[in-house]
């Protein structure tokens, strides 16, 4: 069964890579802003549509389209944070109010996307430069899927370096652990929040844009993915970026191997895993450390 093992591992990692790209922004925003953003899924959906629509306008170049789409999603995220979420930070149950508010945002964005693009699914081909297969230990995987795994690792390492090695990164971590202290030390907390939210939304857009060549895109894309993302970040640890990576890879590998060995009842297992983690390690497998 060795070849099967290799194949399943590759599949699992590629699913994990995609899950990480949606989960990491969610976790980053939660870690710093303490906001669980229900609209993160529709931002992912917008990223996918952005890549499709913009690349159709721009010489059919997927990469150009994806880049513009991702930036657009980041801006939408920043506007949502500035206009809607910011007024709620100082409420006592801010986190719950914000969860429900972003739920409302998700409903609105979903409907607007339907009006703009219709309900019919869209699909775009794999970008030509990565449209070939690669052999690994006797198994083949498309170069594009390897690329997505690579991007997820680059995002992980990049964020880690940014947060530990740069001044801005230090400020973000300091603010995440003690907002009042950071404010007293002269950090412009509201602006930093908007920046982090923008960064998190960019990551959702990136995940969506890179998913577009892999699957059909419809306005409901965000509805399913947000629940998957919740599972990932809870297992890894809410607010933890490395936790999101571990959670995403575990869930991805589980999905890949589970289909082979578990005939039925697999639908409940992610939620049972989520319950077990919450009961025994509520802060997640790697959730002890702030943000990282």
């Amino acid at each position: 069964m060795f070849p099967l093992f290799v194949a399943e591992t590759l599949i699992g990692l590629s699913i994990g890579g995609r899950l990480f790209l949606i989960a990491v922004g969610l976790s980053l925003i939660f870690g710093v802003l303490n906001v669980l953003n229900f609209a993160h899924g529709v931002f992912y959906m917008l990223g996918a549509y952005g890549a499709i629509t913009v690349s159709a306008l721009l010489l059919d170049n997927f990469w150009l389209g994806a880049a513009v789409g991702i930036v657009a999603v980041g801006i939408v995220g920043a506007i949502v944070e500035f206009g809607l979420i910011r007024p709620l930070y100082d409420r006592d149950e801010a986190i719950l109010d914000q969860l429900i508010l972003t739920f409302g945002v998700a409903m609105i964005v979903h409907e607007l996307a339907r009006m703009l693009w219709g309900s019919q699914p869209r699909s775009i081909p794999t970008p030509g430069s990565l449209d070939f297969s690669v052999g690994i230990l006797g198994e083949t995987i498309t170069a594009y899927r390897l690329f997505v795994i690579g991007v997820s690792v680059v995002v992980l390492v990049g964020l880690w370096l940014f947060l530990t090695r740069t001044h801005h990164g230090h400020v973000i971590r300091a603010t995440a652990s003690d907002r009042e202290m950071a404010a007293m030390l002269g950090v412009d907390v509201p602006r930093l929040y908007t920046t982090v939210f923008l960064l998190g939304s960019l990551l959702a857009g990136l995940g969506g844009a890179l998913a577009a060549p892999l699957q059909a895109v419809s306005p409901a894309l965000g509805d399913q993915i947000i629940i998957d993302a919740f599972v990932v970040v809870v297992i890894g640890g809410l607010g933890s970026i490395s936790g999101a990576f571990v959670g995403a890879m575990l869930v991805g590998l589980f999905q890949a191997f589970g289909v082979q060995y578990i005939a039925a009842g697999d639908l409940a297992l992610p939620f049972i895993a989520m319950i077990l983690v919450l009961v025994f390690r509520p802060r997640g497998l790697l959730g002890e450390d702030e943000v990282l």
Partner: peptide, 30 residues
């Protein structure tokens, strides 16, 4: 409404069937 069918595709292929019946529809089929 799954996002990734590759594990299922792998499961089907490793069973080496000659023919496959599909009842997937809409976004899922695409």
């Amino acid at each position: 409404a799954s996002d990734d069918y590759t594990p299922h595709i792998e499961r089907i292929l490793s069973a080496e069937p000659e023919a496959v019946l599909s009842s997937l529809w809409g976004t899922d089929l695409v």
